[in-house]
Design a protein around this nucleic acid. Structure first.
Lengths: 212, 212
DNA sequence: GTCTATAGCGAGATAGAC
DNA sequence: GTCTATCTCGCTATAGAC
């Protein structure tokens, strides 16, 4: 086995340094936020030295921006697909949106709270502005809802309110998870089960609320 | 006018130093969080010197705990009243809960996101544990919902899910406000109007979803 | 009680050897 | 590319004058 082959093999098993850093940064930033995270935490988590972080990504801010933009995108990526779909009926869209946002949150437990919180603390900052502009997700859905109202398929409702309702019901449980858990004495397993049930329950709840 | 009267008068107009500090700390902590806030920011906001903060409240942590506990309590104070009420019907309770949580969030725009975020970053910490224990809000409501199901007043539904739904619909819009505003191009005034409408809309939405 | 000055430490960032 | 050592600065906290 040549030296080059060894390296190639190692890369398949072990991640490249840059990828290790990104993994660790994702973990630390999403848990502690920009101001709460320490470069040392990220280096430790990656099993490397602080200086390497600066070698790959000039500064803490730059590394954060990368993670934050990636996180914001991931949070709404599939949502956009469903909303833009031409084939799905309104009710099907709602079902897909709910199911997908809950599944995404279960796979990435810290992601929604992270993105929301950083937007809060940095709403006027340039990072949020640029990212925000890429995320105009809702327009197509608002139109679709308005059509359904006009055609008498659902009861009259403000489309914006309905959109907010769908997002709220899908995402708030994850954002407020620690409070819910303490308040209602719920274990991790019980919480996961509740959220699994919500994939159907929420869509059902919404459709009951808007049908004639 | 004697010297003492002057001071008394001054106190009526201008707050005591301790109160000024608490006001500023509330403002800064709720906006930036524990790790994002600087003692200097709080001192500047209060128009006093950094050293005075330590004179009145030994440390940043101690000052934060005071603000955080106060915020957590305020966030759920009235909710508990309505939930425990013997006179209100289930539907009335839902209406009161929604209206009150939305009103509270409109008056204290940063409060929900602040409390939620600090719980996230400190869920196992001692502060959250002690505060969490004081907040077991939901039990009475869960029972009330279960009764309503048993008596056939509403359709069968998991009471915990319904509780989560009510809280989600009331609070998520405020937690995710910056994202919603960027995403949907909504001004402050439009947002306030939407939330004002939600006081009725959400209760209506929930009741439609659970009635037979 | 309120201020100025400063101690002391921790975190981001860089220099330079290997 | 990766490390150790170090610089620099900003922040919490304290000392001490008034």
């Amino acid at each position: 086995m040549t030296h080059t082959e060894e390296i190639t093999l190692a890369k398949e098993i072990e991640l490249s340094t840059e990828e290790k850093i990104l993994h660790s940064a994702r973990k630390v930033f999403t848990k502690k936020g920009l101001s709460g995270a320490r470069m040392q935490d990220i280096a430790d988590e990656a099993g490397i030295n602080k200086a390497l972080l600066h070698y790959y990504f000039r500064s803490k801010e730059k590394l954060f921006e990368k993670i934050f933009e990636e996180a914001s995108t991931k949070m709404f990526a599939k949502l956009t697909e469903f909303i833009d779909s031409k084939e799905l009926s309104l009710f099907e869209k709602i079902e897909k949106m709910v199911e997908n946002q809950i599944a995404m949150s279960m796979e990435n437990p810290f992601l929604p709270a992270f993105v929301i919180n950083e937007f809060h603390q940095n709403a006027e900052g340039s990072i949020c502005q640029t990212i925000g502009r890429k995320m105009s997700v809702s327009h197509k859905l608002i139109e679709h809802i308005q059509e359904a109202v006009n055609q008498g398929l659902i009861r009259p409702i403000n489309p914006i309110q309905l959109f907010i309702n769908i997002m709220s019901l899908s995402m708030f449980p994850f954002v407020s998870k620690p409070i819910l858990q303490i308040n209602m004495n719920v274990t991790e397993e019980q919480f996961a089960l509740l959220m699994e049930q919500r994939k159907k329950d929420v869509a059902d709840f919404v459709i009951r609320a808007i049908k004639l």
